[in-house]
Design a protein around this nucleic acid. Structure first.
Lengths: 360, 360
DNA sequence: ATGAAAGCGCTAACAT
DNA sequence: ATGTTAGCGCTTTCAT
């Protein structure tokens, strides 16, 4: 009986002798399937990987056995042996100051879209939270062989750390702005154009004093602000310095800044916000102050999150194509891993006109 | 020179002879570190795991070497050898009909909170999208040894599949309603109480014809509706049958249903929605129809997503404590894995009173 | 068409 | 305090 040779337990070290061990039924492995099917491990392995070498009959028997016992090849052992990895690391940074609150609905939706794109391509997603200022540690996902590459959600203020990661050959794709001197691959929207179109739209509606809400120390917001300036220049309207309001993407902080603006003595009749959350917060603050949107103040946001079209008034905004974004990031990463060159990609940023900027 | 014995490359099979191989610099491994440090693999391994057996001096040298070369122990090999797993599978189901759109901001936020809780506990998160009606396949994450257990975001209509998973000993925690005859562990809000409080609040404000918006074929919504009935019973008010509006958590579908309600001839003066997204969509539809909130119709939602307090009017709602939820789910799963018994947990659901239900 | 055996990168018992 | 060696669960050459 050649097959039963190894049927006696032969586990070497490790705590197989602890009290708990009797409770946990030893997990099924290939050897068990092979034994039960009366074949060798090699045959069982081949059967499960649909290797044509094994006869149809045997293959069917082994497959059925595995299925009925809920056996699935151990992924860790398999990838160790095959030296291949199907897991992509996705890093969602957090800033200390925001007490780890999960950033923006847009980022969250982006994660959903990446997850979907990965699933479509037979890849896994390992999601980790990393402190913004320790972004370099994202490379460990790759160094440890846990991930074939890394996608970072947002550039934050870490251009240098990201460049360093790319410099040491960590396959890397970042959601954010395309910057000069950049070693890593970005996927993002055409922020300048988006900012320009949004602002132009407000100017076209006759607005002259347009506030910009966003933190221009972050590259994406900075580019959107560039677009804002561009539109002003094109129309020969001089932007009002005091109407550049610095606020992060956090709704609570935005609310405070907007309250200051509303309470202040600088007049304004339009708002271009660097994100939909900021825009909605602004509208809410305006209305609470008794101002009407869009009659008194026209508002345009950026992102086109799901909620934007269900807000009241519905929010005019620059759409970032979320589904396309997830796919583009995943494809870029897989290109890099395959040794192909991945070029930074700017997705089109188009204006979605809704009630919050209706001429009136 | 005992250490250099194995220094010549000795890789056996697999395509090390392909064209690409020259491009990819062979990834560093423990053997390399050991050789460079002039010690054996065991010593190197011990040094990196801070084993006190190895001398302070050697440990420092090896650690520094590893750090400077960005070497990190291969996670796959390590967990294979250690027979331990630090990865938790998180499953975000999707329904075919909704074209894979990522569900609700609440679910997304929940994922963020789970990610944070896992990071805090030194665990990893593997995120996967699974078709709602193939939920059982979530078990493969466990069967393949990819995850030490599974967290499922939402019960959907798959009570039986979830029970089956639990029955075959897959460590499992589900976000959702606590149901009778349930074999799996749930974490969720006290939906009945939440629904009761929300409705009671509307009744207290003098509302008599309160619409319920939600899909009561989903357990969570069903329990919230139970609370709605309970509150009515307690006040001796008879709920209006025609005001139970069936709509999923999808905003677009909700909008259609609400439009019908608004356009219909059944009068109502209050709305209790099974989610904030539904509530906001409802408010937006009401306002577009020229109705005032809360003067004409009072609205209370469920979830307390971030946007709720920045909506206009700010949204009264039942808070589900998201951060606590993530921690509770992770802790419950780790309990199960450790062989401890995890009891289903109902988190408190408290009313957050804001403008949308102000007595008026 | 099937089996025996080597080894993926690592750790820990068992040597010294 | 350090080294030798077996083996985690699997796949694949090499042999039959």
């Amino acid at each position: 009986m050649p097959h039963s040779k190894k049927s006696a337990p032969k586990r070497t070290d490790s705590g197989a002798a602890t009290v708990v061990s009797s409770v946990r039924p030893q997990r099924l492995q290939l050897a068990d399937i092979a034994r039960l099917a009366g074949v060798s491990m090699s045959t069982a392995s081949r059967a499960l990987s649909n290797n044509p070498l094994v006869s149809e009959k045997t293959r069917g028997r082994v497959a059925e056995l595995a299925r009925s016992l809920n056996y699935t090849v151990n992924a860790g052992a398999q990838s160790l042996r095959l030296r291949q990895n199907t897991t992509v690391g996705v890093v969602l940074p957090y800033s200390q100051s925001l007490r780890r609150k999960v950033s923006d609905p847009f980022f969250l939706a982006l994660i959903g879209s990446i997850a979907t794109a990965l699933t479509d391509r037979g890849k896994e997603m390992l999601l980790t939270r990393v402190r913004e200022d320790h972004l370099a540690s994202a490379g460990q996902l790759y160094d440890a062989g846990r991930a074939l590459g890394v996608i970072v959600i947002g550039q934050w203020h870490q251009h240098d750390q990201l460049n360093a990661l790319a410099a040491r050959q960590v396959p890397l794709v970042v959601w954010g702005a395309h910057l000069p001197q950049q070693l890593y691959c970005t996927v993002g929207s055409d922020n300048v154009e988006g900012g320009r179109v949004a602002t132009q739209h407000l100017l076209d509606a006759g607005r002259k004093r347009i506030a910009f809400l966003g933190d221009i120390s972050e590259p994406e917001a900075a580019q959107r602000y560039d677009g804002y300036l561009k539109a002003h220049a094109a129309c020969g309207v001089k932007p009002v310095d005091k109407l550049r309001i610095s606020t992060s993407f956090d709704a609570d902080e935005a609310r405070v800044e907007i309250a200051k603006l509303v309470g202040g003595r600088t007049k304004f009749d339009g708002i271009f916000a660097a994100s939909d959350v900021i825009a909605m917060t602004a509208i809410s603050a305006l209305m609470q102050a008794g101002l009407r949107v869009p009659q008194d103040v026209s508002v345009v946001g950026f992102d086109d999150i799901e909620m934007a079209r269900h807000y009241h008034p519905s929010l005019s905004t620059i759409r970032q194509p979320i589904d396309e974004a997830g796919e583009a990031m995943v494809d870029a990463l897989l290109d890099i891993v395959a040794g192909r060159k991945a070029v930074p990609r700017q997705l089109p940023a188009v204006l979605i006109q809704r009630e919050s900027s209706l001429p009136g």
